[in-house]
Design a protein around this nucleic acid. Sequence first.
DNA 1: CCGATTTGGGTGATGCGTCAACCTATGAGA
DNA 2: TCTCATAGGTTGACGCATCACCCAAATCGG
Lengths: 161, 161
Amino acid sequence: MAAQPRWLDAREDRAWRVYKHAQEQLDSRLRRQLLQDSGLSEAEFRILAMLSEHPTGRVPAGELCSSMGWEKSRLSHLTRRMQEQGLIAREPNPTDARSSLIVLLALGRKTIEDAAPQHVQQVRQDFIDVFTPGELDLIGDLFERLLHHFAEEPDGALDEA
Amino acid sequence: MAAQPRWLDAREDRAWRVYKHAQEQLDSRLRRQLLQDSGLSEAEFRILAMLSEHPTGRVPAGELCSSMGWEKSRLSHLTRRMQEQGLIAREPNPTDARSSLIVLLALGRKTIEDAAPQHVQQVRQDFIDVFTPGELDLIGDLFERLLHHFAEEPDGALDEA
DNA sequence: CCGATTTGGGTGATGCGTCAACCTATGAGA
DNA sequence: TCTCATAGGTTGACGCATCACCCAAATCGG
């Protein structure tokens, strides 16, 4: 099956390679910079950011998982480590004994408030400011199309040729 | 310093969030699918692909590093693991006693030749085919601009506001 | 009310990439 | 030739994400 695949032509190959390469560079730059000036990983940053945007600073774990699109175990490992660092706490959810609430602690709030400005600045410098507003809209449109595509094809569907 | 950063406006924020989210989804889909139907990680796939494209199937480690944009230690760990799996071998480079040659073994060649068609098919399905040829060129142009930007700003340069 | 399934979450092993440190070979200058 | 800086590569510790399970609470069917 699929003995004679359609290889990528020059245009396709170039788009894919360039995209991949740029994406990796961008990722590693932002990761390194964030780590250096705040000691946070991207994942930790996003957790703290989401908690700090929440009015109460107390969010059920499942909600974090689904809004990040993460696996449960990933969040579990991560929150355990963050708890050990004193950034957050985990406490039982009164409305559902299975669930747990992730709680932003004072140190976590301070950490994210210190880290955010520099991180935004980096995102600006390494991504936003490289494009015009129109191009940003375009990027939004194109990658939103990818998201729709993924939503329609739930991962395992390459059989029915 | 940087007490009052320019936060992202609605358009910028949307572009960044959508891009990030789509990129993560795309990555995790391709990684999972590749792993499932060939047992390879993306990194292993790329190494094998590059070796198999090379006429001799013997490439100096440093060359792999620079064309992938990887750190030396990453390649070292990876090639050790691949060697243990019998995919490649490492042998001394006759022209430079410090360097080593990464050699594609028969098992490695078979593995990549089996894996490549399906992987290309996945890249097509999850990326290429979602866009028009014109859009692919556009993506190539936009992300190439990112690469040029990175090349000009060698990582640590956010001081001079 | 009881049994089966589902849901929310946690655990341990494993593979991967980074960082920092290290070692040897090479090459350039005195 | 000697010295010293640099380049190519390796190693070990560590943090992170995934996978495959596991567990208890909730929910649904009867």
